[in-house]
């Protein structure tokens, strides 16, 4: 193991490590801790410039209730879920199929199609922006949740295909061959042989896509406007404009916006990291 395990070093350095660890963490998360602290302060503290001292009072309930009562933040959060969940389902479903096709079958255009998905997944959003907005407008889906979700499904299919194809490629091919010898049809092989084996990949991709889409800001501003349809990222930006200098509210809003992906990450940590680091080791 590298670096040398700390248990094998001198007691002094063990002690230093044990102290350094929490200090490093606090410094690393300092901006976030400050936000969490501020989100429970009173308006009086903010006006008096008391940002870093001990809060004069703890207004946890008051601040968080205030943002839900006085702003459409609840609506924004709902919109985020309405965009994110269908996108996760759609992109994972599509890429199970494309990944299966590209991972199992040998045909001429295979690698070319695979590279198309990979390359498309890396292009800058701006090159898609004008035509995609136009397309969405023409379909009558501009400023709708489905319009935004449809684009996300299509775009995320690129990354998901890369992921799924590599995952399927690493499965034991003999299983599929054996099923073919038994006379099982290709569709049934997909459904009854391959899909059950893909469960870990499906879980990993789902958490990853959930986080990506929840945190998307660019497309939210391009394809939606107004509290009726905008997800929380775009909503937070416009709320920030309204809450000038009301930092306790901005902070509470930020915490609320960050919560779902953070919870997702903590609940599904193993899958999340497996998804992110795919390809980092081989």
């Amino acid at each position: 193991m590298f670096p040398t395990p700390i248990e094998k070093t001198s007691p002094a350095s063990q002690w230093i490590y044990k102290v350094a660890l929490p200090i490093a963490l606090i410094l690393w998360l300092l901006p976030l801790l400050a936000v969490a602290m501020t989100s429970v302060r009173s308006a009086g503290d903010i006006n008096a410039g008391n940002y870093w001292g001990w809060p004069t009072s703890f207004n946890l309930m008051a601040n968080y209730t205030a943002i839900f009562e006085n702003t459409p933040i609840g609506q924004y959060i709902m919109n985020s879920f309405k965009v994110t969940i269908p996108t996760v389902i759609g992109a994972v479903a599509l890429s199970c199929m494309t990944g299966f096709a590209l991972g199992v079958y040998k045909f001429k255009a295979n690698l070319l199609l695979f590279f198309m998905f990979v390359a498309g997944n890396f292009v800058p959003f701006q090159i898609l922006m004008v035509p995609v907005r136009d397309l969405t407008l023409n379909m009558g889906l501009y400023n709708t949740i489905s319009g935004l979700a449809l684009f996300h499904i299509a775009f995320q299919t690129g990354f998901c295909t890369l992921f799924m194809r590599n995952f399927i490629k690493a499965l034991p091919f003999e299983l599929i061959e054996a099923a073919r010898v038994e006379g099982v049809s290709e569709i049934r092989i997909f459904w009854f042989v391959v899909i059950p084996l893909m469960r870990p990949a499906i879980a990993a991709l789902s958490v990853l896509i959930f986080t990506f889409i929840w945190n998307d800001y660019f497309w939210a501003t391009v394809l939606t406007q107004g509290a009726e349809t905008q997800p929380i990222t775009a909503g937070l930006y416009s709320l920030n404009g309204q809450w000038v200098a009301a930092w306790h509210l901005v902070s509470a809003g930020s915490i609320v916006a960050a919560l779902p992906p953070v919870l997702m990450f903590f609940l599904m940590q193993k899958h999340f990291i497996a998804g992110l680091t795919l390809g980092a080791v081989k």
Binding site: V104, L113, I127
Partner: peptide
């Protein structure tokens, strides 16, 4: 035929929203 069947929806979506817009 099977690979094309499985690829069709993915390719259609990806072409419509990513490849053609480029």
């Amino acid at each position: 035929l099977a690979p094309w069947l499985f690829l069709a929806p993915g390719i259609a979506m990806f072409a419509l929203y990513v490849i053609i817009p480029i």
